[in-house]
Design a protein around this nucleic acid. Structure first.
Length: 470
RNA sequence: GCGCAGGUGGCAGAGCGGUCAAUUGCACCUGGCUGUAGACCAGGCGCCCUUUGGGCUACGGGGGUUCGAAUCCCUCCCUGCGCACCA
């Protein structure tokens, strides 16, 4: 049927290789600087091997390096930011860096880290997200460097042009078995078994599935569970669908590398599989070695949780300074070191000194550093002062609150709802009954109470929301 | 194509004709204690209202039976497993 020879698509040469370096740029081979960048703890490993990558770096050759991300939400958070910060450092060394926006791949959905297929996004939605992203990336990279600006590209430009024939040819470079090697696919394909001791959901060992061994070891508590107990659990109910288009995702992301004709890709540990698919394709289609620079995910070292919107643990780049500072202060203590390494460029030599300040103050130091990256040092210092006044001394400074306008007398629930201080009137009611609403220093507990706060009255809703009547 | 098992709130997972806006766990929100951290304690967690009460919308979609359906029937869609098919 289909032959399995790798195919080079003819249109690729014209459409996708437009990033020539017209100016021969000098790249820095400053050993100290390069070591500082790569030894900070951000980079986990470099594939296929670190040594040959460093050789290329030190050779003074200008490398083309990219990082890709799908615009699946309207706001980036710190774990994205740290990738762009790292990319900026490579750019400053003189390398050609590319920010890839996965506007095409966002429509498909990356199966990484998901037990369920992700919902697809509409074009309009994606467009909106992209716009937000670009403004959030701006403070992190120097787009004004005329000699070596970071480039922004969209993978819709080439992925949307692939024909079914092209896709089939691309797919012929991989086997289903290779795809099934991914954790998430394995979990969904074989299902998971829950440890009878600790309840941790485990993958099945291949040896177990092949019936070579009669027991499973829990990867969490290491207790050994015999076969019959593993299969006592509902056999099929925990198997989840794997949709065909999810297999296509690594191909598409891989093809990005081909289209961009890059020397290296920067990616998180969760993206290694996809990045390696790109390495395979680049090797087969263009006989080119692509390096994969794997960077840390900013996960909680204790719980291994990632920053998450739904858990309210994210620090979003769309936030204003006050909100951003607060979000960092609300991070679990275990995250302090992670934040220090990834999101600040305070020299490593100062780490111990800062950690010795104690969790709260170390976090504050880092929060100020990060906020100043986005809003400048002065704003960050002001934000810190406000924070201390508002939360440590519990004497909020009116001037820093956002302003709402009270125009008429309203029932308290209606007031909160209409000014966006509660997402519904029921929500408003709950907050009031919980004693979370304070107007002018007085906690109001009657949802029906009519209010018409005067100018300059401070209104607090919950611990974090403060507004002032203007 | 056939057979079997399923589709319930952000997730997991009960319920199997009225007492179900739906047990429970996780997540989340609020209050207390704190450092806007964690742990712990208490309360909450669809929407709306004239709120010890009332209304509306919801258990994959549509239709039906019934005074009454998440629960029964029909039909469509979707998922898993098995069988068949494997040119």
């Amino acid at each position: 049927m289909f032959n399995s020879h790798p195919v080079v698509f003819p249109h690729m040469e014209n459409d996708c290789c437009m990033w020539y370096s017209y100016v021969v740029m000098k790249t820095s081979t400053d050993k100290k600087r390069i070591e500082e960048i790569f030894n900070r703890g951000i980079v986990v490993k470099i594939l296929p091997d670190e040594k040959s990558f460093l050789e290329r770096l030190f050779s003074g050759e200008r490398l083309k390096i990219y990082v890709g991300a799908d615009p699946t939400s309207d706001s980036l958070h710190l774990s994205h930011a740290k990738n762009y910060m790292f990319l900026e450092e490579l750019r400053q060394l003189g390398h050609e860096v590319i920010i890839l926006i996965g506007d095409f791949t966002a429509r498909i959905g990356d199966p990484t880290g998901r037990m369920d297929a992700r919902a697809r996004l509409s074009d309009a939605h994606i467009k909106k997200n992209v716009a937000g992203w670009l403004s959030q990336i701006k403070p992190l990279m120097n787009f004004n460097d005329k000699k070596n600006p970071p480039k922004i590209v969209y993978n819709n430009a080439w992925l949307s042009k692939l024909s079914l024939g092209d896709i089939v040819a691309l797919a012929s470079n991989f086997t289903v078995q290779q795809m099934l090697e991914r954790d998430m696919f394995r979990r969904r394909f074989y299902g998971e078994w829950k440890c009878t001791n600790c309840g941790y959901p485990n993958m099945f060992d291949q040896d177990f599935l092949d019936k070579k061994i009669q027991f499973q070891n829990c990867s969490n508590c290491a207790s050994r569970t015999p076969k019959n107990e593993v299969f006592l659990q509902k056999e099929s109910s925990n198997k989840k669908p794997i949709f065909l288009h999810e297999f296509l995702y690594p191909l598409m992301q891989g093809y990005d590398s081909v289209a961009l004709d890059v020397d290296a890709e920067l990616c998180g540990t969760d993206q290694i599989f996809n990045a390696l698919a790109g390495r395979t394709l680049l090797k087969r289609l263009k006989n080119k070695e692509k390096f994969v620079i794997v960077v840390n995910l900013m996960e909680n070292p204790k719980t291994h949780e990632l920053m998450s919107k739904s858990r309210g643990t994210g620090v979003f780049l769309s936030s204003g300074p006050t909100e951003m500072y607060g979000a960092i202060m609300a991070q679990p203590d275990e995250m302090i070191e992670v934040l220090f390494i990834n999101c600040t460029r305070i020299p490593l030599s100062e780490k111990d000194r800062i950690m010795a300040l104690g969790p709260r103050d170390a976090k504050a130091r880092i929060a100020r550093e990060i906020v100043s990256k986005f809003y400048g040092e002065k704003k960050a210092a002001d934000t810190e002062k406000d924070f201390i006044k508002t939360f440590s001394q519990k004497k909020p400074d009116k001037a820093s609150f956002s302003i709402i306008h009270a125009t008429k007398e309203q029932a308290l629930t209606d007031f909160l709802y209409s000014h966006g201080l509660a997402s519904s009137k029921s929500e408003a009611r709950r907050l009031i009954l919980n004693g979370a609403v304070e107007i002018g220093g007085e906690i109001l507990r009657d949802p029906r109470e009519a209010v018409f706060p005067q100018k300059n009255t401070v209104i607090r809703v919950g611990k974090k929301k403060f507004v002032r009547v203007g």
